[in-house]
Design a binder for these strands. Structure first.
Length: 638
RNA sequence: GCUCAUGUAGCUCAGUCGGUAGAGCACCUCCUUGGUAAGGAGGAGGUCACCGGUUCAAUCCCGGUCGUGAGCUCCA
């Protein structure tokens, strides 16, 4: 019997029934057969040894494909589990999937794995790879599966089997002395794994539920070549060097103090200066874009938060109230109720809309201690918040403007790559279905008009309305949530907000919450990592350092310092009793964008010698020529 | 919040199998006046996170608190 196999390019070929993807690949080229890891048969990902019984389309997956990586990493997870079972027979295995970068496997073990355990496991894995077991797939009945894992005492696997839907094929993979319940597919055999490393151990709840037992999760990664492994480890190292917590300390940007409390940021002078620049820029642009800037209190009465629904829906993130004149006041976790108060302070006409209130509003939210993370996750932060109140017909256009405004800001800070998500109605939600549909449609249309590519995140909207989130990708391609644009059905209703329409009757305004940078704290953290601490000239706390070579040059150097400062260039001078190399090293370490070296030559020629951070000597400049250059760069935000 | 790890000088880190601690850098003083990433010498600096317990004796062992890290969970 012959079957017809169709290839991705549309060509097709006949083969004997029962042929495997591997055999097909071998027929094409030995190199291909060597490189492929799995195959997609029609819509299904299969082992390379899968016997093909009918006509099908085929697509081979290599390591560079997502699917190939998954198979590779998942198989490595199995090898790790086998090693663990060999070394610690009493350990129960849970699940071991491939993840974005590598894989993990969860184990139930009474005592925690130590670093030396990881070493031992790695050694055992190497043996298993050398022994080169096949990953052998077997499809078995439910009863047989239950019996098998009961025999091994693998209660987690039994729980999984019991939850598989009736009629689902149950497959196990056998590699030597190790058997695992697994859908597959897998590599052909264990020695396909060439380079691997176990990276860390941590606790993880069974099935991700904190009511369940905490298991021990071992993370690892693997690659087809040692070189790729090294490249990956290098990238991890690079990320570590850029860690904003580390750079924050090195560059003296910000700090957290035990005496004050966890998750509460102190912006040191240099960061304060940068923040000030960001805020000035932000305010200027908001006025230009038709926003009104407001300031509102940090606390408000319980009743306000009752009306807004925060006490019902958000209280776990709010701090305990304080008593003032026998009344409970809460510190604000959000700014919206205050902006609504301003809106409601008088009767509004449709002619005034849209009204846009913007505020750099500092809010406090309770975050569980374990989730705090540098500037990225804190307990007190400043949102670059705004609320837009508009008529239904204005909604779409306002969202288009918002998307444009957001892109303008993010690009100004050097971000070029984004991930955009549209989140739709969750299970638990307020508002009518048809309103949701309308609002979601408007957001979608705005995205289409803005020609921004986006993904839909079904059911991930907030309970009060659909939203658009924009994540920025930093220099290392990591995504950070910044912009969020959220439609709100809830608050205008709760606060009974109205405006008088053309028809002389009351209408309910639409409301949008939005933050573009997100929070200044997180955004600053992302900025630090994105630029690796090398801030662009317009943001650099010190833009130029003047470095005289010896005492003889102090006079001229001070004059240069003065001239630059008069031109609003943030300049400092190094009058230390040190050699030039030492002073340059200090300035380089501080990541100051430009250094001006002043020695005999410069005094004599009445010019300056310029050195650029990370680039070295740029040679001689006339001072005003250099100032022009700086101003140009500042203007261009480079 | 949970699991594990962790907290020693301003920073990065040694160290003590229980007898009150050490390096490099930074800081201060002096010498040196040096041309594009570390010149030399000397000095000062620590209740070893905090609170209890065990002990003749605790920075070290035990318990708790606080902080930090990696994850889990959470994230309007």
């Amino acid at each position: 019997m012959k079957i017809k196999i169709t290839f991705p390019d549309g060509s097709s070929k006949e083969y004997d029934k029962g042929i495997t993807p591997l055999q097909i690949a071998k027929g094409i080229s030995k190199g291909l057969a060597n490189e492929i890891l799995s195959a997609r048969l029609n819509e299904r990902e299969v082992d390379l040894t899968h016997k093909i019984e009918a006509d099908a389309t085929i697509l081979f997956h290599k390591f560079r494909d997502e699917e190939g990586k998954k198979v590779y990493w998942h198989s490595t997870a199995h090898i790790m589990a086998q090693a663990v079972k060999r070394l610690y027979p009493d350990v129960k295995i849970a699940i071991g999937p491939a993840i974005e970068n590598g894989f993990y496997y969860d184990f139930d073990k009474n005592t925690p794995f130590s670093d030396s355990d990881l070493k031992k496991i790695e050694e055992e894995m190497r043996k298993i790879i050398d022994e080169n077991f096949y990953f052998e797939r077997r499809e078995i009945s439910r009863d047989k599966a239950l019996e098998t894992f009961e025999r091994f005492g693998e209660n987690y696997k039994i729980e999984l089997i019991n939850e598989l839907p009736v009629g689902e094929t149950i497959s196990i993979y056998v590699q030597g002395d190790f058997v695992d319940l697994c859908r597959g597919p897998h590599l052909i055999s264990t020695n396909k794994v060439k380079a691997f490393k176990l990276l860390k151990v941590s606790g993880a709840y069974w099935r991700g539920d904190e009511k369940n037992k905490m298991l021990q999760r071992i993370y690892g990664i693997s690659f087809p070549t040692e070189k790729e492994m090294q490249t990956y480890l290098k990238k991890l190292e690079e990320a570590e060097k850029r860690d904003h917590r580390k750079l924050g300390k090195q560059l003296d940007l910000f700090g957290f103090y035990n005496e004050v409390g966890a998750g509460l940021v102190h912006w040191h002078p240099k960061a304060g200066l940068i923040r000030n620049i960001i805020e000035d820029f932000w305010k200027k642009e908001h006025y230009k874009a038709g926003y009104d800037i407001v300031y509102t209190p940090h606390i408000g009465k319980a009743n306000l938060w009752q009306t807004s629904g925060h006490l019902d829906f958000y209280s776990e993130n709010m701090y305990a109230p304080m008593k003032i004149d026998e009344q409970d006041y809460y510190i604000k976790p959000m700014n919206c109720p205050f902006h609504i108060m301003i809106y409601k302070s008088k009767l509004r006409s449709y002619r005034e809309l849209p009204i846009k209130y913007a505020e750099l509003g500092t809010v406090y939210r309770y975050e569980r201690s374990g989730v705090l993370h540098g500037l990225m996750r804190v307990r007190g932060f400043t949102q670059d918040d705004a609320h837009i109140f508009c008529t239904p017909s204005q909604l779409e256009n306002e969202v288009v403007k918002l998307l444009d405004f957001s892109m303008f800001f993010l690009k100004a800070f050097g971000f070029e790559n984004f991930e955009i998500f549209l989140s739709t109605k969750p299970d638990k939600a307020v508002g009518k279905d048809e309103d949701w549909e309308k609002a979601t449609k408007s957001l979608k249309k705005a995205l289409d008009i803005s020609k921004l590519p986006y993904k839909i995140d079904p059911g991930e909207g907030v309970f009060y309305g659909p939203k658009i989130d924009i994540k920025i990708k930093d220099a290392l391609d990591r995504a950070w949530q910044c912009t969020t644009i959220q439609f709100d059905f809830n608050l205008p209703e709760r606060f009974d907000m109205t405006y008088i329409g053309e028809d002389n009757s009351e209408h309910r305004p639409f409301m949008i919450h939005r933050a573009l940078l997100g929070s200044l704290e997180r955004f600053f953290g992302v900025l630090i990592e994105h630029y690796a601490g090398n801030f662009p000239l317009w943001l650099a706390p010190v833009q130029v350092e003047v470095i005289p070579i010896s005492e003889n040059h102090f006079g001229y150097a001070k004059k240069i310092l003065n001239d630059l400062q008069e031109q609003d260039i943030r300049t400092k001078i190094n009058l230390e009793n040190e050699k030039i190399g030492y002073k340059i090293r200090e300035a380089e370490n501080e990541k100051i964008p430009y250094m001006i070296i002043i020695g005999d030559k410069e005094v004599e020629n009445q010019n300056i010698s310029v050195r650029k951070h990370l680039n070295g000597n740029l040679g001689a400049f006339q001072l005003n020529e250099f100032i022009e250059k700086l101003k140009r760069e500042i203007e261009q935000k480079k």
